[in-house]
């Protein structure tokens, strides 16, 4: 028996909007730790890891570990029927091939049940070891989204370079090239507007902008984004999900031929 009640149901709506472009089908895993997902895009270039810790739910009952295969487009269709202020409860019985999404309006005057068919998904689970990153950039998520969008009108790839000067996003294309430098800036009114660069050593990596732009679908979840870079590892682009967890996007770099 599974029963997860999330008072801030809009978080789940935003999570689905953040990942459904990148991943078509995925297994949602429930355990005592929380509600999680790990999935790769169809070309195995990017990976998304979601964790919503059990403590973040108003009610969290998961009698035994359960893996539920879902088509994310269909989940998104279901969740779009929930109001932004609705409380969302996920329910599944042991051995059932369906999951039920229950939506309650804040004043309890409307209660809706949406039952969705589960599917068998044969997905590969990857072990991601803890890593030391050469540079970690924390910046406003809207700023990062703007940079990715702007650069993708010029080129297909972005070079992200971190030096003592700041973090530089560069691209080049048929019509020309572009460089955007963001310097560390902690003298702002609100902490979420700060750009903070922790650098152990300079790093420069090249990535496909198409994936970066897809990751920025998570922007409504968090005012800030954290970008972790190491010269021999995929970049990690992380958005916090309130104080209950995170969405991490891993993207493999492009290398010189």
């Amino acid at each position: 028996m599974l029963e997860l009640r999330l008072v801030q149901g809009s978080l789940l709506k935003k999570v689905l909007e953040a990942i459904k472009e990148l991943v078509t089908d995925a297994n949602f895993d429930c355990s005592a730790t929380g509600f999680s997902l790990q999935a790769m895009d169809s070309s195995h270039v990017a990976l998304v890891a979601l964790l919503l810790r059990s403590e973040g739910f108003e009610h969290y009952r998961c009698d035994r570990n359960l893996s539920m295969g879902m088509n994310l487009n269909n989940v998104s269709k279901m969740l779009r029927c929930a109001g932004n202020d609705d409380i969302i409860t996920l329910k599944a019985d042991d051995g059932s091939d369906t999951v039920t999404f229950m939506f309650e309006s804040p004043n309890q005057d409307k209660i809706a049940d949406f039952e969705m068919k589960l599917m068998d998904i044969d997905s590969e689970h990857l072990g991601i070891p803890e890593a030391e990153y050469h540079a970690i950039v924390k910046m406003p998520s809207a700023e990062f989204a703007r940079i990715c969008k702007d650069l993708s009108s010029i080129g297909d790839t972005v070079v992200i370079s971190v030096t003592k000067e700041g973090v530089k996003f560069s691209t080049r294309g048929d019509i020309g090239n572009a460089n955007i430098v963001c310097r560390q800036n902690t003298t702002v009114d609100k902490p979420e507007e700060a750009t903070i660069i922790e650098m152990q050593e300079p790093v420069s990596l090249t990535f496909a902008l198409r994936y970066m732009n897809s990751f920025t679908k998570a922007t409504p979840l968090s005012n800030t984004v954290t970008i972790s870079l190491s010269s021999e590892l995929p970049v990690v682009v992380e958005y916090k999900v309130a104080d209950m967890g995170y969405i991490r996007f891993y993207l493999a770099p492009k290398i010189e031929d």
Binding site: V45, E124, Y250
Partner: peptide
């Protein structure tokens, strides 16, 4: 020109 690496080249199956 650049070659796109795969994420599975970095992380092992569990």
């Amino acid at each position: 020109t650049h070659v796109q690496l795969s994420i599975t080249e970095f992380y092992r199956s569990t």
